[in-house]
Amino acid sequence: MAQNANRQNVANSTRVVAEPMLASHFGNAIIDPLFAQFATLVAEHLAVEKTKHINLVISMTRK
Rank of each mutant, 00 (worst) to 15 (best):
G27T: 08
S24Y: 01
D32A: 06
A47N: 10
S24V: 07
A39D: 01
I31C: 03
M1I: 10
R15I: 00
I31F: 02
T40R: 09
R7E: 07
L34H: 14
H25Y: 14
A11K: 05
K63D: 15
N12T: 09
T51D: 09
L41P: 00
S13V: 07
A29Q: 08
F38Q: 07
L46W: 01
F38M: 15
N4R: 10
Q3D: 13
N55P: 00
A5V: 13
A43D: 06
A47V: 04
E19C: 03
E44N: 14
H25R: 14
T14M: 05
L22F: 07
N55Y: 11
I58W: 05
M1V: 09
F38I: 12
L22V: 14
H53L: 14
M21Y: 13
L46R: 02
F26D: 11
N4I: 15
Q37D: 15
T51L: 05
A39H: 00
K63Y: 15
V17F: 10
R7G: 00
M1G: 12
L22K: 00
N28H: 02
S59E: 11
A39C: 04
A36S: 09
E44L: 14
H53T: 15
V17M: 14
I54A: 11
D32E: 12
H45L: 15
L56D: 12
S24R: 06
K52S: 11
N28W: 04
A39T: 06
K63E: 15
M1N: 13
E19N: 07
V42L: 05
P20S: 00
N12K: 09
S59I: 09
A43R: 01
Q3C: 04
E44F: 07
I58S: 13
V10S: 02
H53E: 13
N28I: 02
E19K: 08
E19R: 11
E49K: 09
F26I: 11
H25A: 09
L22M: 05
A11G: 05
H53F: 08
T14D: 04
L22C: 03
I30C: 07
H45P: 06
M60D: 14
V42M: 01
V17Q: 04
I30L: 11
V57N: 04
E49Q: 06
V16L: 12
P33I: 04
N6F: 00
V48D: 07
K50R: 08
F35S: 04
A39N: 06
T51N: 07
S59K: 15
L46Q: 01
V16D: 08
N6R: 04
S24D: 06
P33N: 02
H25K: 12
M21P: 00
H25I: 07
L41C: 13
L34G: 10
F35T: 03
E19T: 05
T51F: 05
S13N: 08
L56F: 15
N55H: 05
E19F: 08
H53M: 08
F26Y: 12
L56E: 06
A43S: 08
N12V: 04
Q37N: 13
S13F: 09
R7N: 04
N28D: 05
H25W: 13
H25F: 15
A36Q: 12
L46N: 01
A47T: 15
A18R: 00
A18W: 01
I30R: 02
A11S: 14
L34W: 04
E44G: 14
I31S: 07
F26G: 10
I58R: 14
T61K: 13
N12G: 12
V10H: 02
Q37S: 13
T61A: 13
A11W: 07
F35H: 00
L22E: 05
N12L: 07
V42T: 08
